[in-house]
Design a protein around this nucleic acid. Structure first.
Lengths: 187, 187
DNA sequence: GTCTATATGTTGATAGAC
DNA sequence: GTCTATCAACATATAGAC
């Protein structure tokens, strides 16, 4: 792994735990066993770290959504696939996903604009799938907004849950979460 | 309203938008149309603001949970009451609730310890209710952990949704959210 | 209760030696 | 690629005049 990737990974962990603003370049350097000045040989500044971490994960979501949309499946199956996409990204990019969720508002300039656009597009695509499920009668006739709010609230929190759990429990989550989110908890 | 309460309210708004660490005492003073030094005639420091905001909301949750536990109702009805409790607190303490959710880890000393204890107790009480619902057959036999994770993920996000919505939409949420969370979105 | 002035430490980032 | 030394700006907080 390149030194730059190591820095990004360490930054993701620290940002996740204390938040972007509370982590200093000195903190990051110390965690890497080096001096703050040396970081600048690998990255242009603190903002570049934040933007790199967040936009990489954001693009993973977009790529995943594109794949789901291409599949010719029912709305229910598509929703299921999206739930699994969130779990997969939470497993693969746990820390960077936490940063995306909690520190996106500290992005500046073009990176901020890009993130906002990616998020808006993703949510719009998700809503279309839910709406088509209501039309086909697969889903209840509840406000699409409320439905998406509930789904995304849970999906966006998965990263908090994942690191505390064993592989078996993660397997349970993959099986139970689509069930809970789509068919509820009542008998 | 006392000057102190005005400061707390303004701080809650700023902390919600940019996070505790990114908001300076100068920012807060400017938003209050005063100088930073003057703030210290009303509060002992930045930490006191954070602790006051978070612990007040945390105690609201504890009080609400105590009331729900006293009621002699079904687990389903209790879960429904808790969902409404979260909506009520999100409406009444929108900004302070956001601060609790995103900046609790910046609490220091005794306030930190107190918050952690309150949260742990609340989650334990919530789990007991879910467990009793599984025992009575009201809820599916799914992992209580996963069930609570899903419920709290959504309930903890309500504050993000509330400020964007009209009174009618909030009324919809009160009606639809218990339904979605407890009985799912599938037909 | 608010101000100006200031103490004391920390911030992101750069220059230049090795 | 990493270091030491440093800068200019900004942080929380206090002292004391009005």
């Amino acid at each position: 792994m390149t030194r730059k990737k190591q820095i990004l990974q360490t930054a993701a962990l620290l940002f996740k735990e204390r938040g972007y603003s509370a982590v200093t370049m000195r903190d990051l350097a110390a965690a890497m066993d080096m001096k703050a000045a040396s970081l600048y040989n690998h990255i242009s500044g603190k903002q570049e770290i934040l933007a790199t971490l967040i936009l990489e994960v954001a693009h993973e979501f977009t790529t995943g959504m594109d794949a789901v949309e291409l599949d010719d499946k029912s709305a229910f199956a598509k929703a299921e696939q999206l739930i699994l996409l969130h779990i997969k990204i939470a497993l693969e990019y746990t820390n960077a996903l936490a940063v995306l969720n909690t520190d996106w508002m500290h992005l500046e300039g073009a990176a901020y604009q890009e993130y906002i656009l990616l998020r808006k597009t993703y949510e719009l695509d998700f809503k279309k799938i839910l709406q088509s499920g209501i039309s086909t009668g697969e889903f209840k006739n509840i406000s699409v907004e409320t439905m998406l709010f509930n789904l995304l609230s849970t999906l966006r929190s998965i990263y908090l849950w994942i690191p505390k759990k064993s592989a078996t429990e993660v397997a349970d989550l993959k099986k139970e979460l689509p069930q809970i989110l789509l068919t509820g908890i009542s008998s």
